[in-house]
Amino acid sequence: MRKIINIIFIFLLIIPLSGENFTGIQIMEKVVKKTGWKDMEGEITMKITVRGRTRTRKIKLFSRKRTEDESDMVMKFLYPPDVEGTGFLLIEHAKGEDERYLYLPALRRIKRIAASGKGGAFMGSDFSYYDIGKPKLKDWNYKNLGLVDFNGLKCYKVEALPINKKIEKDTGYSKIIHWIDPEKWSIVHAEYYDRMGKIWKILEVKEIKNINGVWFQMHLIMKNVQGESVSEMKFENIEINKGLSPKLFTKRYLMQ
């Protein structure tokens, strides 16, 4: 009898800890809901360090969700001076390739940039276009690996595997593991594995801030553990859900 009580007791302890009450996809849905926004405006400071040399870029950013899984994004470069005024426009397409444009004030012309796939490096950083976008839940099979301790924080560990080879090839990832803080439903840490199954990049989220009820990742560091680079993104003056005008996300605005 005592044995049975013991076993029940142990089970009672394990169940809440193991987090078996949520499936992987349920967790991710909550993440998208709690950290998602309709539109945003803000400034980014991006520091990319390769082999000990650092490049700093300052960007004014506008972004909006155009449809359920398509976004638009406009970036204006504020720093360094030699690229000041250049503007970048990204129009995402769920089907077919994204449109990317760059406005070059030196030539007073807009040039289209051939899309290098969603796995391409964002601004030459360790973040890919895929990493900075909203997680595309349809592309992955999620599995809840349970509640674990992460730097003193109880977090859900969620494994994401690409649903097919195409997604794997597009993103360059054979596996992603997310650590999710169940209080804010925000990703606090992630590991990305390359197509050979070796760990490739590690994401650290240094600061999460509540802006208008949305948990926003203010400070991210992406470290390439296979190479010699690390990228840091810091957000400032973030405003969310202001109702940005669709006119912002056009080539015409890019030139202004």
């Binding site: 490049r55 004030p105 030196a106 051939a114 290098s116 490096a121 601004m123 030459g124």
Partner: peptide, 26 residues
């Protein structure tokens, strides 16, 4: 300025690592 913007265009079109054997990152 023109050169800087040409390079920016290239890097957004491909990867800055294409030049890694010729010029350092900054």
């Amino acid at each position: 300025k023109l050169i800087a913007q040409l390079l920016q265009l290239y890097e957004l079109s491909s990867s800055p690592e294409d030049f890694a054997n010729f010029v350092d990152f900054n």
